[in-house]
Nucleic acid binder design. Structure first.
Lengths: 221, 221
DNA sequence: GCCTGTATTTTGATTAGTCAAAATATAATT
DNA sequence: AATTATATTTTGACTAATCAAAATACAGGC
């Protein structure tokens, strides 16, 4: 059995691989796991010896097929638990990430599949992040743009929030930009770095472009 | 924060104190935690230094008020989680103990109180074991006898099962002796060491006396 | 009162995960 | 090409929890 530390290293590696091309630098794991560089080197070597990672000296790591399968299992637990905490226990949307971080290592597959069934086999979590199925496969979803690079003056649906920080999530929630919400981008100014959008209820919001890049929107709403 | 190992030592000490008078011998912890005696000595000393236990050399341990409060918190988590797994996720009654053993260390108080509310603040878990409230207080319940020492020929209600082993729980479930069931003791023979009882549906069951001592029955049903 | 058996404690070693700080390799800049 | 800056690795040390096995204390029987 993988310890929860090993599971965290696997999950961090997977998340980085999903966002970037090529090898995962050690510094990415240092950042994600909040440990000093030497610790990452030590752990990575041990995990490579176990066949969970490939370690290219002075370059970084890549998940092996075995490591990838385990990492997908952890991600599945994390996202299903988050969904459960929000939908069933009605917890605050911005506080469940921390809770899921602990529970993902304690929930057995048996309990997990009960939760999955109880929720009706959801394919995305409350942030809109996709949930892999028990075989590690993600449901294919339409290609999606963010509020920073989508078409203007068209009614769009928010499908995903690419930031887990409580601050940003609180902001998003307070302004009704949660997944499912319908928005229309009115104006986007590269010069000033801000963007203006409108909700269904007519409320207008001004967002910085970096923030806008964290909000994914799907096809027409 | 107490590690999950420390939580396990606290819980084991509390459970032993609830069943026996006086000091908790080291051997009780050796037995409950499945470690060698030297390990218990080491852990107990460390926990005594932290103010969680009193350690009487060569005698055993006692919970301090601080340790007791923590232990009650762990017991509350364990029993609420078990109740949740059975009632909400419809898990098998005999398999939840093991799951709760892992989850009790990962569930935060915030999540716990959501679960408690979701379940409607139950006072007993699926085995009939009492659940302490958030302040560590047990709801007072009527004094209860076991099937080994209760009155004969009277319809009684099963209220609690004093054994967490999957084997015994499976047996109890298969024969409809779960908490809530109604039974009547027909005959009890010290000589042969067996006892005969009848369920509402007329089914008759023969139990050994040690097994009967593990089934608590309440007043008339 | 001595001896024996059992419970407890001690001692020395091990594993997982971590840090601090020094050493080293690589990439970037001049 | 030489120097500088940055990323990574190494080394030595530490904590928590554990085991094996030797040492010790104690209670009860004789």
């Amino acid at each position: 059995m993988a310890t929860s530390t090993v599971e965290n290293y696997l999950k961090a590696t997977l998340l980085y691989e999903q966002k970037h091309e090529g090898i995962v630098p050690m510094s990415a794991l240092v950042e994600a796991l909040g440990v000093v560089p030497g610790t990452v080197t030590t752990m990575v070597k041990a995990m490579a010896a176990q066949g969970l990672l490939e370690h290219e000296a002075r370059q970084g790591v890549r998940l092996t097929p075995v490591g990838c399968a385990l990492a997908l299992g952890v991600l599945r637990k994390h996202r299903l638990v988050e969904t459960f905490l929000v939908q069933t226990l009605e917890m605050d949307w911005s506080e469940v990430h921390v809770e899921a971080e602990a529970l993902e290592h304690a929930v057995s597959n048996r309990v997990l599949e009960k939760i999955d069934a109880y929720l009706g086999h959801p394919t995305v979590d409350p942030h809109g992040d996709p949930i892999p199925n028990a075989e590690g496969v993600f449901a294919t979803s339409a290609t999606q743009a963010t509020m920073q690079d989508c078409t203007l003056k068209k009614s769009l649906r928010v499908t995903r929030i690419l930031d887990q920080s409580a601050d940003f999530l609180d902001y998003v929630q307070d302004h009704g930009l949660k997944p499912g919400a319908s928005v229309k981008i009115l104006k986007r100014e590269e010069a000033s770095g801000v963007l203006q959008c409108e909700l269904v209820d007519g409320e207008e919001i001004i967002l910085g472009l970096p923030a806008a890049a964290k909000i994914v929107v799907g096809g027409a709403a």
